[in-house]
Design a protein around this nucleic acid. Structure first.
Lengths: 182, 182
DNA sequence: TATGACATGTAATCTGTTACATGATTAG
DNA sequence: CTAATCATGTAACAGATTACATGTCATA
């Protein structure tokens, strides 16, 4: 079985929070802060089709009296399990290099989909991955510092700051979660 | 003429700093911190081919005595002009939403390709875009704060912190640049 | 001489973008 | 009645991934 794309997981996560039609999903993606994902019908309807083929979601046409034709999608038990599997797998350095967007998506759905314990585990896993990655980045920066032009050096610093900011957020999120569990 | 992809500009920028073969480029992309871009031959060689078709680079086969067959690529004048055009165009909010990776790439090449004045302009443009975007993000956060679950709220905060960190870096970079110009 | 690194490429496939197409329903 | 919005899709295309294919050169 082929792997599910990031858009696929984003859709699966949204459906798990609230059954929706393709059009509903488009609205979510086009409204701010989820703009990273495409709101184009040419992306969403095929993605829904693939998820349905894989047995992760099921669509049912609504036939209310005066209602427009509208297909509501819901995750199947298999879809819910797959979503949880994706969310709870450990964070790797590759996940970080890829930009952290996927991790954030996993985190955003983790509470409703996998529960607070799993959420905390995800955060700890992220912290561990960052703790492993940051020193390597610093070493690389020290090596590059002398020979690169100013703009290259600053660009690298931007990346490092980004990861450091992510680390601070992670620790803040862990604290918040641990406080709310008491 | 079709638009050049991000990978295309990354290649163009690297070639402008140092003429390279496809294999050289793969090594740059596979070695740390440029891992965002694909180091697979199936991405790089076609990308080089497209750039050559568009007249932005030119490849010449090296025929040194005992050397292996090796094609070195260099940007053409047209390629250099196109790179500068891409670097110097103003930063939009859409650029920010897309994740800021493209902006960073533009910045990384800006000094060698467009000069320090253009680099400073790019940074100022980025600052302006952030100044326009951050208040909107905060408003959206306030609206979402009450109804979203903890994980959703925290995920949003992560995004905001990222942009704030980027803003601080931008201001730091501007200061650095202005100081070095004196 | 066989193994592994260097170096370049192609083919199948998947995903997403852009643009177009269709029809139902509601508001003015 | 007509325009806008709701709602769903398709078709052509571009770009990337994966896996495979090919051949050169150094070295053990």
């Amino acid at each position: 079985m082929k792997e599910t794309s990031r858009l696929g997981y984003a859709i699966l996560g949204l459906l798990q929070m609230k059954p929706s039609s393709g059009y509903d999903l488009r609205k979510v993606f086009s409204s701010t802060s989820m703009k990273t994902y495409s709101d184009s019908p040419g992306a969403i309807y095929p993605a829904l089709g693939r998820l349905e083929e894989q047995g992760l979601v099921r669509g049912t046409v609504e036939e209310g009296s005066g209602l427009r034709r509208r297909q509501m999608f819901r995750p199947t038990p298999k879809g819910i399990a797959e979503l949880r599997r994706w969310i709870t797998r450990p964070v790797t350095v590759d996940d970080l290099v890829a930009g952290g967007q996927e991790i954030l998506l996993r985190f955003a759905f983790s509470e409703t989909s996998a529960g607070p314990v799993a959420t905390l585990q995800l955060l700890k896993s992220l912290e561990a991955a960052l703790q492993a990655y940051l020193p390597a980045l610093h070493r690389e920066f020290d090596a590059l510092k002398t020979k690169a032009p100013t703009s290259g050096r600053l660009a690298f610093e931007c990346g490092i700051r980004g990861y450091e900011s992510l680390m601070k957020w992670t620790q803040y999120a862990i604290t918040t979660y641990e406080a709310s569990r008491k």
